[in-house]
Write a protein that binds this DNA or RNA. Structure first.
Length: 851
RNA sequence: GCGGGCGUGGCGGAAUUGGUAGACGCGCCGGGUUUAGGACCCGGUGGGGCAACUCAUGGAGGUUCGAGUCCUCUCGCCCGCACCA
């Protein structure tokens, strides 16, 4: 007898056999194919598509299992569910791997994709494979080129020279978003350098305001992600102020330098003026003067500072006077122009009006170089507020302060504005800006930290930019009818070749004038490929258009998106930008691509993310071999809530397998007993009622938990139902068991488990319970609140907050009777004491307060 | 420095609006079944105490009949951002 115990089990739970069997059947039956069904509500579940880096790891298992459970459960509730899968298959690792293994990136990539498809199929994920896509397929990337041309037509593409991030290791430029906080490359973690290069940009800044504003509409997104995006966009309100260059005598020139400030109300406190070392005017201002050497030293020093030092704010503030001055437009004062390393070229205009009394950085600089610090905005309680009251001119040149004051306060020594309220967003700020506006020397302005998206990459394995450089016509887009620009296969990356080493690729003729011209040899950032794939799934095989609008309208937006927090800014911001442009192009009807976002936690080992380099990778294969994918799926969900990081441990997987075995035996024996009819239906007794109630409670709990992504507790609830069913069997004698109820419980458990353990459920449903149609086409059990509610509840009695007794109370008993019963229960505790108050919390407790 | 999150048994983790702290699982202990082991079934399992009880959610206060949950302070860990004018 293979199985002992009290059950007559004819077959043992044999996951491997049944999993493979059903995977083949589902594949043959096309179980997961979906089409637009106008009679059903649609639901689009999407997990971020993977990079084809080889075999799947536990992070993939977790991510895709979460999505699979949601997709399957929603299908059972009658929705038309889109659940596709594809690959983000362009990118640098393929080139690196190709160099290492002396193959071609395409060979490596497509071999890995095949491997991952097999992995995913073995995990039993319910993807509609007919919609499979890979971003390196020409059928896909041609539409990426089409998008580029559309963006160009709309003025959203620009090629320009500016200081850019260069990764020396990846040998390519990077977008700002791809440089991490400490100034390193997001992919290889090497320190990024600045280079002055001509590159292609997508003008995402045109949508900065909307990308910020619409964060408020994303009620289904984690606050954390929205905050990160808002910080990244970094909107500040303020003013542009024009300063006129003048000579040492204060004689104005016709040259102006504009600054951006959030505090125009402090203009009267501006005692010096700063240019970034990279500012284009620096050289011109000092060339041939006695100041040139000192300024050049600062410029050189700034260049030597690494991105890390400069970003950390730890580099000491250095400055040099240029010998030149500007005129402060509010009071005509002559202000010295300095160059300093703490002014950033890529924020605002690269020039700053320095107000040392109101800005800590300026304050430190002024103290270091002996520049005056006149107070202009003084806090209410500060003694200077009374001391300087009424002084419109500069009476005090140097505030006796240890640090700058940047809070709200009263304006002093500020001409006509003296006495007004100063501070961020204050009346003084508005008044000063309005007065500048009248004189044409300033204007209200909003500045964003967000920069345009640098999309060109000097690498081979990417989507070619469809542009042509013509000596006569300049930059010319590749005409739409000449798409796709096919990425040639005969480039040898093992020799370090790129498209720029491939004359057969770049030698071409100008589409405009027909003359000899050079094709662009940069490829696009892979994030351009991932910014629209989720819409392409709606119509993945379309060769006539990027997608059919009716199909996109039906499926989009994505109802539930699932992926890692590492894309909080990168992919998620870029995709929102693409979506808004598509909407303006009229090819989609929605504003935001992802209605609900779940950022699933990482799977770690010894406190660290699993990675090949750390050698702490756990492979799903051997666990599938031993326990089957159903046990693995259920286990990884049971270990922790989906959004929390998870420390991998094998302890417990055994227990999960054991539970599935318990369910297996329970369902099997219930099916056999109800079929053979042995035993008398004795419905209505207390034990049966209790089990029936528990079944309905669990239906409710599991349904609710899935909707809230509390998949760990939903599994716990199903375990409770299993335990309740076993308890019923163990306490009620054979012969008086309610076999119809047992069968009902067995079917319910099988249905509830179907999203989690699709193969075991299918085997039980069809082979054991004898159903004709797949469990995955069955209806999700309906929660009946009435059936779940008990007729007797346990209530506790507290005396002064401490539990002193428990009692069984029938539902519907009047409150005064409950109180009377409670007082009897705790009579020992309230003897000789005065009962001050009695509170009843319905169905839960009675609280007695005594003195 | 700023912003956000988290601290609950030996472990992973549960706890509607404040309402029986520790669900569920692992591990451990005991019992049954078994030639034995495994598997399976049943029971126990936060600390202290023979017990009635009592102490327990990082720490200290507070609000409340009642606090893991709310408030104040504090310690520790993690994650973002960081010279943004």
């Amino acid at each position: 007898m293979p199985d002992g115990g009290r059950f007559n089990v004819s077959t043992k739970y044999n996951p491997h056999e049944i999993e493979i069997k059903w995977q083949e059947v589902w594949e043959r039956d096309g179980l997961y194919k979906v089409t637009e069904d106008p009679d059903k509500d649609k639901y689009y579940v999407l997990e971020m598509f993977p990079y084809p880096s080889g075999d799947i790891h536990m992070g993939h298992v977790r991510n895709y299992t979460i999505g699979d459970v949601v997709a399957r459960q929603l299908t059972m509730t009658g929705k038309s569910v889109l659940h596709p899968m594809g690959w983000d298959s362009f990118g640098l690792p393929a080139e690196n791997a190709a160099i290492k293994s002396n193959t071609h990136p395409a060979t490596w990539t497509y071999k890995n994709i095949e491997r991952q498809i097999a992995n995913f199929q073995r995990m039993g994920f319910s993807y509609d494979w007919d919609r499979k896509l890979a971003s390196s397929d020409v059928e896909y990337y041609r539409w990426g080129q089409w998008i580029f041309l559309q963006f160009w037509e709309r003025g959203l593409v620009e090629r320009r020279k500016s200081p850019v991030n260069w990764c020396p290791d990846c040998k390519t430029v990077l977008a700002n978003e791809q440089v991490l906080g400490d100034g390193v490359c997001w992919r290889c973690k090497s320190v990024v350098e600045k280079r002055d290069l001509e590159q292609w940009y997508f003008k995402i800044t045109e949508y900065a305001q909307e990308l910020l504003d619409d964060l408020d509409t994303l009620t289904g997104w984690p606050e954390r992600v929205k905050t990160m995006q808002a910080n990244w966009i970094g909107r500040s309100e303020g003013a542009e102020v024009d300063f006129t260059l003048c000579d040492a005598e204060g004689e104005p020139s016709d040259q102006k330098i504009t600054v951006f400030t959030t505090r125009p109300d402090t203009l009267f406190g501006c005692t010096f003026f700063l240019l970034a070392p990279e500012h284009s005017l620096v050289h011109e201002l000092v060339h041939g003067t006695e100041y040139a050497a000192d300024v050049a030293a600062v410029v050189e020093q700034a260049k030597r500072e690494t991105a890390v030092e400069r970003a950390s704010g730890e580099a000491p503030k250095l400055g040099a006077f240029t010998g030149r001055y500007v005129i402060n437009p509010v009071n005509g004062e002559k202000v010295p122009v300095w160059v300093s390393n703490y002014v950033l070229m890529d924020y605002g205009t690269g020039a700053v009006m320095a107000v040392p009394s109101g800005d800590q950085r300026d304050f430190e600089f002024a103290r270091k170089y002996g520049l005056p610090v006149p107070p202009v905005v003084v806090a209410k309680g500060d003694p200077l507020a009374t001391e300087l009251a009424g002084y419109c001119d500069c009476h005090m040149k140097d505030a006796p302060w240890e640090e700058a004051y940047d809070g709200p306060g009263i304006m002093v020594q500020s001409g006509d504005f003296t006495g007004m309220q100063g501070g961020k967003g204050s009346e003084g700020m508005k008044a000063v800006t309005e007065s500048l506006l009248e004189r044409g020397e300033g204007r209200f302005s909003i500045n964003f930290r967000l920069r345009d998206w640098l999309i060109s990459r000097q690498r081979y394995w990417g989507n070619p930019i469809p542009a042509i450089h013509c000596p006569a016509c300049g930059l010319v887009p590749v005409p739409e009818d000449q798409l796709p620009v096919v990425l040639p296969q005969d480039v040898d990356v093992t020799k370090g070749e790129t498209l720029a080493d491939h004359p057969e690729f770049y030698e071409t003729t100008c589409p405009k004038c027909g003359g000899a011209a050079r094709r662009e040899t940069d490829t696009m950032d892979t994030f351009t490929c991932s910014s629209w794939y989720y819409i392409r799934y709606a119509d993945a095989r379309n060769s006539e258009a990027i997608w059919d609008k009716d199909k996109a309208d039906y499926w989009m937006p994505v109802d539930q998106y699932i992926g890692g927090i590492e894309h909080a800014i990168l992919h998620l911001l870029y995709s929102r930008f693409f979506t808004k442009v598509f909407r303006d192009m009229g090819i989609v009807e929605f504003n935001e691509p992802f209605t609900n976002l779940l950022t699933q936690g990482m799977v770690k080992m010894d406190g660290e993310v699993m990675s090949k380099s750390k050698g702490n990778v756990v492979s799903p294969d051997e666990m599938i071999e031993k326990y089957g994918c159903d046990a693995l799926r259920a286990y990884i969900l049971f270990m922790a809530p989906p959004d929390k990081d998870l420390e991998w441990s094998y302890e417990g997987l055994d227990g999960m397998y054991r539970w599935l075995g318990r369910v297996w035996r329970l369902v099997t024996s219930a099916a056999e007993e109800s079929a053979s009819g042995c035993g008398v239906a004795a419905s209505g007794d207390a034990a049966a009622k209790k089990l029936h109630r528990e079944m309905h409670r669990v239906i409710g709990k599991v349904t609710q938990d899935i909707a809230a992504f509390q998949l760990n507790t939903s599994i716990a609830a199903m375990m409770e139902l299993t335990n309740a069913a076993y308890e019923y069997r163990n306490t009620v004698e054979e012969g008086s068991r309610d076999l119809a109820l047992m069968r009902d419980v067995a079917e319910t458990l099988t249905l509830l488990l179907a999203p989690y353990t699709p193969h075991m459920s299918e085997e039980l449903w069809r082979e054991v319970l004898g159903k004709d149609v797949s469990v995955h086409r069955a209806s999700w059990p309906v929660f009946d609140a009435g059936a779940a509610s008990a007729d007797v509840v346990e209530m506790v009695v507290q005396v002064n907050g401490k539990v002193r007794a428990k009692m069984q109370i029938e539902v519907g008993v009047a409150e005064e009777d409950i109180i009377a019963a409670a007082l009897t229960e705790v009579s020992d505790w309230i003897e000789n004491k005065e009962v001050v108050k009695v509170l009843v919390v319905a169905g839960r407790l009675v609280s007695v307060v005594v003195k």
